[in-house]
Nucleic acid binder design. Structure first.
Lengths: 159, 159
DNA sequence: ATTTTAACAGAATTAAATTCATAAAATATT
DNA sequence: AATATTTTATGAATTTAATTCTGTTAAAAT
């Protein structure tokens, strides 16, 4: 049970989250200085935020261009999944190049975000993986020409 | 000039990136142990990766549910921007709740990803911000019912 | 009002970050 | 091919931070 019903975050927690969202490698000591608290107290709070699954991961944003991963595509997919079936989405989520899988309202079923090297590798990826997923009925692919903004950071309230 | 032409990453760099993408708060000492190298050498490489803008940010993934931010929407937008004009996209990118702005191929101009509390706050956000952006011609909004996967991690090759 | 629980501080210990001088390896130059 | 130059790595020394634990304070529950 990953219960998220009763999560209460106070001003201090939000402040910690704001600082760590901006820089996950901030030292515990610097956090303590910013908040005017003892390092031991901050450490305790951070550990609790991890335990409560408020903090899900510390990750490094890597420039995709540095790895020649220049193509982003969004794919709208219709699937023959029965209502509430998660079969197809689970298969899609397993593909490492697939960054996002959303169930969406409307005529289509899924919206998928994919990052690859180029259109050739997108094609080969589609052929390799999608052909093995039985319930896929149709896909519409939208190619990104240029990305102006791309981040997952949340707007964290003061209180 | 943020030049990204001549970025060469060797096996060691990729290994560092893989470990730090998975856990941005890994200690330099642990990195050194994993790679069988001296900590000072690792530190130098990490700093270089930062300088070269290969590493763009260390960030913390925070559970949006913990902040009651339950709604994700994708908006397709047509704009009356002249060819190559970045005016509209730049305005959109300034909105904190807007996580992504992409220029896309096809009939629409932009694809935008937004995260808010609920549909009411999405509406108010659209009214507040979009009304002030002159070139917007039309929008089509797709609401996410459920997110199965959401991450920005790259597939990092061995070599 | 009192008990219980949770949160914080401060000191002590252990561990890590950072710096720097030097050596080794890889590249470039002649 | 030999040498110079640059880049990359090491290891030791120093500074700084992480972590643990005990005692207090504050808050919540009874």
């Amino acid at each position: 049970m990953t219960n998220e019903q009763e999560i209460v975050l106070d001003k201090t927690d939000l402040h910690i989250l704001r600082l760590m969202q901006e820089n996950a490698r901030i030292s515990n000591a610097d956090l303590a200085r910013e908040l005017g608290m003892a390092p031991s107290g901050i450490l305790e709070r951070v550990k609790k935020l991890e335990q409560k699954n408020v903090i899900q991961q510390y990750t490094t944003r890597i420039n995709p261009v540095a790895l020649q991963q220049k193509l982003v595509a969004f794919i709208f997919m219709k699937a023959a999944d029965g209502p509430g079936s998660e079969a197809t989405s689970r298969e899609l989520a397993k593909i490492p190049e697939v960054q996002e899988v959303h169930c969406i309202a409307g005529d289509d079923c899924y919206l998928i975000k994919i990052r690859t090297y180029d259109s050739a590798s997108l094609m080969s990826l589609i052929r390799t993986y999608f052909s093995k997923i039985p319930n896929i009925l149709s896909t519409r692919t939208t190619i990104v020409l240029e990305t102006v903004k791309e981040q997952q950071q949340l707007v964290i309230p003061e209180k």
